[in-house]
Structure formats: C-alpha cells, structure tokens
Simulated assay, not measured.
Amino acid sequence: MAYSAMAVANAFIKRAKEGRLQNLSPMKLQKLLYYAHSWNLALKDKPLLDDFFARWTYGPVIPSLYHEFKEYGASDILDYGGHIVEEDGELVRKRPIVGKRDEATWALIDRIIEVYGGYSGAQLSSMTHSKDSAWSQTGEVDGGPIPNAELARCVRNVAKSKNVSQTS
C-alpha cells in the first residue's frame, strides 16, 4: 500500500522530533523522501508514496509538500504537516503518519536516515543532480513528473549495496 506523501513526511519529522534526525529542513525532507520512495521502488517494485516527484531547479520535489513546509525556508521543520478536512460540520486538522505496526516501512525510513541523514539539504540536492540520477536523465527542469520506473532504475544498485531489507 502506498502512503500519502504527507504520512511519510510526518514519519521523518517524528524521527527528527525524537532526535534521530538532525537539521530537517524542507529541502532535506524532500530529498529523504526521494530516496525512500526510490529505494522502495527498486527493492520491492512498489511505490512508497501515492504522489510524484517533479523536476525542479534544486532537484526532485513533491509540489504539495513544498507548499506545506515552505514557510520554514532553510530552517528546521518544527511541526507535523497535515490537511484540513470537514468532519461532522467542523473543520479538523488531520496529520497522517505511517502506521506503528508497519515495521518494514519504519525500517526503510530508519535506513534512509542512517545512509543519508547526515547530509544537509544542499548536499542531498547536489547528489540528486548527478549525471546518473533520475532527475538528470528524465528531461528538462520544467516541473514535469519523474517516472517511477526511472526512480527505481537509477537507485537500484545503490539501494542493494546498502543492505536495505527487501522484506515486505
């Protein structure tokens, strides 16, 4: 099952609030999500997210998350993201997150933090600009979507070499 991008973003924010991930700026969050989604595609042949990455100037971006967290600029994200929905005639803020029992997804998130969490947002952005990245190989910087097949193909060898669990 693919999660909303917000649910997985909130999982990374949770880890930051727990002190397990430092300096979680909006740019860093976007790139960690990029790697988590790409690795899941490469290792399990299934999307982690129900959203898409667009080709933006500073690398792959999920536009809806950009707008949710842009107020933080280059600073750390301090609170969970969410959506306003109407329930029983009242507006309620929902803050989705990966389910506590989904051990495989939490293990992936923790492995992504272990491998990429020490890098800054700018460093991760630079990494996504490498000539063999899906961002570089799928077209112009025009806001267009990066196909999941390319995300998987471009990280498959890296993900396998980092010993990420392939269990569901």
Rank of each mutant, 00 (worst) to 15 (best):
I146K: 00
L78Q: 15
D132Y: 05
L151F: 11
A104S: 15
P60L: 06
G99P: 10
K162Y: 02
Y3I: 00
F53P: 07
I62Q: 07
Y66R: 08
V164D: 04
R20A: 05
L32P: 12
S75L: 11
H83P: 00
K31S: 02
P60G: 06
D142R: 05
A9Q: 08
D79W: 14
T105S: 06
P96M: 04
G99W: 07
H67N: 09
R55I: 10
S165K: 14
V61S: 07
G117S: 11
V98T: 10
A5M: 05
Q137W: 00
A7K: 01
T128S: 15
I77A: 10
G59Y: 15
V141N: 11
M6R: 11
Y66E: 12
V164M: 10
K14C: 04
S130P: 02
L108C: 06
D51F: 05
S133Y: 00
L41P: 10
D79Q: 12
M1D: 14
Q30Y: 05
I112K: 02
D102I: 08
L65F: 15
D79M: 14
W39A: 08
E86L: 08
I62P: 15
A2P: 15
P96G: 11
G81E: 04
A42S: 12
A54D: 09
K28W: 02
A122G: 06
E103V: 09
K17Y: 02
C154K: 04
H83W: 01
Q123S: 14
Y80C: 00
K46D: 07
T128E: 07
K160W: 02
M1L: 00
C154Q: 08
S38I: 01
R101G: 15
L108S: 08
F53A: 10
L41C: 10
L41W: 09
I146Q: 09
Y3K: 10
Q30V: 00
W135A: 04
P26W: 00
V164S: 04
E87C: 01
L32A: 01
R156T: 02
S38A: 13
K70Q: 13
W106I: 09
K44N: 11
E68I: 10
L29R: 07
G82I: 13
Y34E: 01
G89E: 06
H67F: 15
T138M: 10
D110K: 09
V85Y: 02
S38L: 02
R156N: 03
A122L: 12
H83T: 08
S125N: 01
I62A: 07
L43V: 14
S25L: 09
T128H: 11
Y116R: 13
A36V: 09
E87A: 03
E150S: 13
H83D: 01
K28S: 02
Q123F: 11
P60F: 00
A2V: 00
L124W: 06
S133I: 05
